[in-house]
């Protein structure tokens, strides 16, 4: 995991450095230990809806990283001046701004993708992951480590989506990123994979594998103690 650290935080001793030494741990828990999709099962709506193609999944992952990092930064910056009573409204306003910015850029420079993703970019506003991280983390942590948290959770979401998208596109159309890799002479695409039920099945398998891996991990750690 050591190679995934944000440069600013690699090698910080506990309690020192810009992230207070929590950078690596924060990133690791976002991507792996408390992965928003595979462990907390949040953000499922979009994870199921856009993963019929790998490209869509990747763009959606980028969107979540962008919105997550931006939102966490600003929520954290404003955490001491935001009145508690209206903090949720403030968070939603910040999230919505970032989401709309991303959506507009997509519409202007990546029209085909914008059409494919349809309403799901806009729906990031209601994505539990973003709102949850802003509430649970950015509101009580310093800006830089909050950004790392947004990055970790965004990446955690992106990785899961990419895996599901990869397999759904491969099984459902025999191609990867639009390039035919399984020849149609001997491979009949299974269209279930690109339909909504296929997303449920794929996500179910992924969570099962994730659980099996983390469980093996835990027993290892217990054994070594």
């Amino acid at each position: 995991m050591a190679d995934r650290g944000s440069p600013a935080c690699v090698g910080c001793a506990p309690g020192t450095g810009p992230c207070g030494g929590k950078g690596m741990e924060t990133l690791r828990s976002g991507v792996w230990i408390t992965n928003p999709v595979a462990v907390q099962v949040l953000g499922i709506c979009s994870a199921l809806a856009v993963t019929n193609r790998l490209e869509n999944s990747l763009v959606m992952g980028v969107a979540l990283v962008f919105v997550g990092v931006g939102t966490n930064l600003f929520v954290s910056l404003l955490r001491n001046v935001t009145p508690r009573r209206i903090r949720m409204i403030a968070e939603v306003a910040i999230i919505a701004t970032f989401v709309i910015v991303f959506d507009q850029i997509l519409k202007a420079y990546y029209w085909e993708m914008s059409k494919q993703l349809g309403p799901y970019v806009g729906l990031i506003i209601t994505n539990c992951i973003i709102m949850g991280r802003a509430e649970a983390f950015a509101l009580s942590n310093r800006p830089l480590v909050s950004m790392v948290d947004g990055l970790g959770n965004g990446l955690g979401y992106a990785v899961v989506l990419a895996i599901i998208g990869f397999f759904r596109e491969l099984v459902g159309t025999g191609s990867i990123l639009g390039h035919q890799v399984l020849l149609s002479e001997w491979y009949t695409p299974n269209q279930l994979a690109v339909l909504a039920p296929g997303a449920f099945v794929a996500l179910g398998f992924l969570i099962a594998i994730f659980n099996a891996l983390t469980r093996a991990n835990q027993t290892d750690e217990m054994g070594s103690q």
Partner: peptide, 11 residues
Amino acid sequence: LTAVDGFTASR
């Protein structure tokens, strides 16, 4: 948002 919209409107 207005700024971004103005920036991308024509495209």
